[in-house]
Design a protein around this nucleic acid. Structure first.
Length: 604
RNA sequence: GCCACUUUAGCUCAGUAGGUAGAGCACAUCCUUGGUAAGGAUGAGGUCGGCGGUUCGAUUCCGCUAGGUGGCUCCA
């Protein structure tokens, strides 16, 4: 088979599908004899297409690959598909599976394929791509249904198992928003009903961890429908927020950064010079005062440059690392908003490093080390994915500079002991970048950290930042935009789901709850609280009229890591009875011992 | 922004073949003072997202609009 593109494969430009293809291409021929999950999913997609064509009029089919979760198929038809159609389609698929017909592969010529696909405009367009690639064209037939496809498939349809449709969604043809929107149905396959139930149960677990749900349950924040994409942080959520921010602040200071703060609202004239007015205006909140236009900042970078420019700079000042937890506002399209993960008002652990070209590599390596250090405190350092995005077609600056910049990023990764994969042409128009994607407890991927090279903003054409070199002449520094956590909001959303709301002690908004067994123990409970508060522990007393069992249940629901039961026996002995999340009853220990114990857990 | 779906009490959700609504949890008051995952009683709470249409009558049907959800595009 070699490396040829399988016939019928979607065009490589279809992102997301590209991955799937490359994975299959790498598969050895002998593996194809076995029935894989991909084959079952992919075959289920075919039968779903067949079912939809059997049930509805004027169906145009596009493509239907397997995914990490299951499969989907894209259709264009006059009927508006909805979940109400699922039972009907599912039972038609079940009927087709029960026929247990073989999947028959056949290689055909372009003309034969054209005849087979007559009337299917999307398929014919896809065929043209395959023909252009000059590779063999194959078809798969199951019963009376034939489709151009490179396979592989199951041998006969009963091998697919059971199929359940999960959702219907819109999807642009070839993933391009300028194209028509098709109707996509997603589905999953399982060996039998029992496995299907398991998959459904897993999905429910993810739903239980959903940060939007836990954010409400744990009283961390709320989102007001009247102000979409803006977060109201409640005391418990804000406690997590500032704890994380303080933690990051300490890391930055230790790593040679200086923290600054710049205005939230800046004038049009500045944004014109920075290029944002021309390139980013759609995403900016613009306001007016006394006939002058201003914009709420979507990024902190111009502010950092203004600080750099506030006095004459020497090469001896470089690298200058300016950190800023500046609140940014971006007018994101409504459809992209998602809980606190994707919002319109947010703060990044942002910093801008102004340095010479020679310093780039060392600065990037330094950043990589910092990122690894921080991620390890959350257990995110294990499955870190790093992507190096290189020069896009539409770029500024000469190729030699780009090449130098790209190799500096690559060398820095190696110096930090990190593997990376290259995303050709995915860099920003002003410079290449590294993106860091972490994998959470549910194996989901999140892009958080990034470091981005920028020759443009400090240049004479933009904000004109200059320093005096050793040669006594003026030079423009290079700017590195970088963030470790990304936005604090998104990172906290990830943490909520990663920990299922049960934060480690150092991050927990309430670290200890003291539970007096009755109000006779209230005074002692108050004494325990005072002793812990003096240590900087976030501690509360449950002075409600409930019984102990109810208090424990309540504290557990709020995911308080330590519960200290105190009663007359403890008061007499100067002890607390310790109960810890996940570990249960640890028995009684002296208050001093407990203080010593928790002291060690107040830092990551 | 695009496609589909969706919006009932603070939260999770019932419900009305069109005759202005219910549960559990949470909340309030009272009783209970109980040593490791829900003690009991009583009570308060909603012009059923907003606007318009059909109708004798709309929370229910239709249209528009806003928010949300799932995708797509984009992205920290």
């Amino acid at each position: 088979m070699g490396v040829r593109v399988p016939p019928g494969a979607p065009h490589a430009a279809d992102r997301g599908i590209f991955w799937y293809n490359t994975q299959l291409q790498g598969r050895k021929q002998k593996d194809m004899a076995e029935i894989t999950l991909e084959q079952r999913r992919h075959s289920a997609a075919h039968l779903m297409a067949r079912a939809v064509m059997n049930l509805f009029e004027d169906v145009q089919v596009d493509i239907g690959p397997a995914t990490d979760e299951g499969f989907y198929y894209d259709f264009d038809l006059p009927h508006r598909l909805s979940p109400e159609d699922f039972p009907k389609i599912e039972s038609e698929i079940a009927r087709l599976i029960a026929l247990d017909e073989p999947f028959v592969r056949k290689e055909v010529t372009a003309d034969e394929a054209k005849k087979l696909l007559a009337g299917q405009k999307y398929k014919l367009e896809r065929l043209a791509d395959v023909v252009a690639d000059g590779v063999a064209i194959s078809t798969y037939a199951v019963g009376d249904y034939v489709e151009m496809c490179r396979g592989p498939h199951v041998e006969h349809s009963k091998q697919i198992g059971v199929v359940k449709l999960t959702r219907v969604a819109g999807s642009y043809y070839r993933g391009d928003e300028k194209n028509k929107m098709l109707q996509r149905i997603y589905g999953i396959v399982a060996k039998d009903q029992a496995e299907l139930d398991e998959i459904v149960a897993r999905a429910e677990e993810a739903k239980r961890r959903d940060h939007r749900r836990l954010g409400t349950e744990l009283d961390l924040f709320h989102l007001d429908p009247e102000d979409p994409g803006q977060i109201f942080w409640h005391p418990r959520g804000w406690s997590i927020y500032v704890t994380l921010q303080d933690y990051m602040r300490r890391k930055l200071v230790k790593d040679g950064y200086r923290e600054v703060n710049t205005p939230a609202i800046m004038p049009r004239s500045l944004w014109e010079r920075s290029g944002h007015w021309a390139h980013y205006q759609q995403n900016m909140f613009i306001t007016e005062s006394e006939k002058r236009l201003f914009a709420v900042k979507p990024m902190n970078c111009p502010g950092a440059i203004e600080i750099f420019k506030s006095r004459t700079r020497s090469y001896k000042d470089l690298p200058l690392r300016l950190a800023e937890f500046g609140h940014c506002a971006r007018n994101e399209p409504s459809g992209t908003l998602h809980g606190i993960m994707r919002v319109r008002g947010f703060v990044q652990d942002d910093a801008h490093i102004l340095c010479t070209e020679e310093q780039i590599e060392e600065e990037v390596a330094k950043f990589c080390r910092l990122l690894k250090d921080v991620y390890s405190d959350f257990g995110f350092d294990k499955n870190l994915l790093i992507k190096l995005s290189t020069m896009p077609e539409d770029h500024v600056g000469d190729e030699a500079t780009w090449q130098h910049a790209e190799s500096a990023l690559a060398a820095a990764c190696k110096a930090a002991g990190m593997d990376y994969e290259i995303q050709p042409g995915e860099g920003a128009f002003y410079g290449p970048k590294l993106e860091f994607t972490l994998v959470d407890a549910l194996a989901r991927q999140w892009q958080c950290g990034t470091i981005q090279l920028d020759y443009q903003l400090p240049s004479a054409e933009r904000l004109n930042a200059e320093y005096i070199g050793a040669d006594g002449k003026k030079h423009h520094p290079v700017m590195l935009h970088r963030a470790v956590l990304g936005s604090l909001e998104r990172f906290i959303g990830i943490l909520i789901e990663h920990y299922a709301g049960a934060f480690p002690v150092w991050l927990a908004p309430e670290q200890v709850r003291v539970l007096p067994i009755s109000d006779k123990a209230l005074a002692y409970a108050e004494k325990v609280r005072g002793a812990l508060a003096a240590e900087g522990v976030r501690v509360e007393v449950d002075d409600s009229a409930e019984k102990l069992g109810a208090k424990i249940r309540e504290a557990s629901a709020w995911k308080v890591p330590y519960k200290l039961v105190v009663g007359p026996r403890d008061e007499a002995a100067g002890t607390v009875s310790v109960r810890k999340s996940g570990e249960g009853d640890l028995g009684a220990m002296s208050l001093d011992d407990f203080v010593a114990k928790i002291r060690g857990e107040l830092e990551p």
